[in-house]
């Protein structure tokens, strides 16, 4: 027995071009609005990427980026001759991984604590005080710290006054990294906290009311309602921070480091700065290093995104 399947006729569809034109006609205002950011990205974000080819070229200014001769992977080979390069990579990763451990949670904790405050005026005053340091540049912060933490500065004077021995804060390799985290927390936590406060304010209040009816106390509401609702924001911020592991902290470390701490302070960006601007510039070499840094950052970001999804959370990309 043979059966003949009835073929339903395919509905008539316009061509892609026609559909696009129709969509454009219907929503032309939106397309015009979006055109500007697209142009901005094309000109300022994507066009300069042509310069990345310098990583595989011997840069000759007279010939320009496109005309400079290709030299294959020579720049990458040269990068690995200098021991300082690999050390700066590990140092960057170590400093920024520990930054994730010590600095990243602080704004979350601060947001949760501030959210529990009932006195609104006091809450907003505190928020302002905590946000203010973010507007100071690292140049100013480092000047303040140099004066406060110097051997003859305020802190050491206090230590001496109470009979304790002075501490070499500014020249100690052991204290350098803790100082980075403490100053980072002081300067940026208040600002970073705003994102979490905004996320908290978006939590449906019905959940709290239902919990109250069920007799939940403050801590239970915090753990069972606020924190879970905050998790998607935390995950996104964590993924973004992970994607920045190889490039964060130049301003801070550049201004806070000195000759005494250079062995624990030269992160990758400072290494690039040194070989590019403090000696004979080799733009091919610098671009090769920057490209490697960007690739590693991208890989880390994708890994963090994947990890977040595997743990049941949401990632950056759908």
């Amino acid at each position: 027995m043979t059966t003949t399947a009835k073929r339903t006729p395919r509905p008539y569809r316009d061509s892609w071009g026609k559909r696009t034109m129709n969509a454009f006609r219907a929503h032309w205002q939106i397309y015009i609005i979006i055109l500007l950011p697209i142009l901005w990205y094309a000109i300022f974000a994507y066009r300069p990427m042509i310069g990345l080819t310098l990583a595989f070229k011997k840069y000759m200014p007279r010939r320009g980026v496109m005309g400079s001769p290709w030299i294959g992977l020579t720049n990458f080979e040269n990068v690995f001759i200098d021991q300082d390069f690999m050390r700066s990579i590990w140092r960057t990763l170590s400093i920024n991984l520990l930054r994730l451990v010590f600095v990243f949670p602080v704004p979350i904790i601060l947001a949760l604590l501030l959210n529990e405050m009932k006195a609104k005026r006091y809450k907003s005053t505190l928020q302002t005080i905590m946000t203010f340091p973010n507007f100071l540049s690292w140049v100013i912060v480092s000047s303040i710290l140099t004066n406060v933490l110097a051997m003859d500065g305020l802190v050491n004077s206090l230590l001496r006054a109470i009979g304790l021995s002075e501490v070499n804060f500014l020249g100690s390799e052991q204290l350098f990294q803790p100082m980075l985290y403490i100053t980072d927390i002081w300067k940026s936590s208040g600002w970073s906290m705003i994102v979490y406060l905004a996320a908290i304010s978006g939590i449906d209040q019905d959940q709290y009311e239902a919990a109250e009816i069920d007799g939940a106390n403050h801590f239970q509401k915090l753990v069972r309602i606020t924190f879970p609702n905050l998790m998607p924001t935390i995950v996104v911020m964590f993924i973004l921070a992970t994607g920045n592991l190889m490039s964060a902290g130049f301003d801070q470390i550049f201004n806070l480091s000195n000759s005494a701490t250079k062995n624990v302070a030269e992160i990758l960006d400072m290494y690039i700065y040194r070989i590019t601007f403090q000696s004979a510039p080799d733009y091919g070499l610098s671009t090769a290093i920057s490209l490697m840094r960007s690739v590693v950052n991208m890989v880390l970001l994708l890994l963090a995104d994947r990890g977040a999804k595997l743990m049941g959370g949401s990632g950056l990309f759908a």
Binding site: N78, I81, D82, G171, E173, S259, A260, K262, N263, R274, I275, Q278, S279, A280, D282
Partner: peptide, 25 residues
């Protein structure tokens, strides 16, 4: 030479490196 250009990065850091050795524990 290329090797001398690369050496320039080390030479640029002599002052800081010597200072570091002087105060290093």
């Amino acid at each position: 030479s290329d090797a001398k250009t690369r050496l320039g990065a080390i030479q640029a850091a002599y002052v800081d490196d010597y200072a570091n050795l002087i105060v290093k524990e």
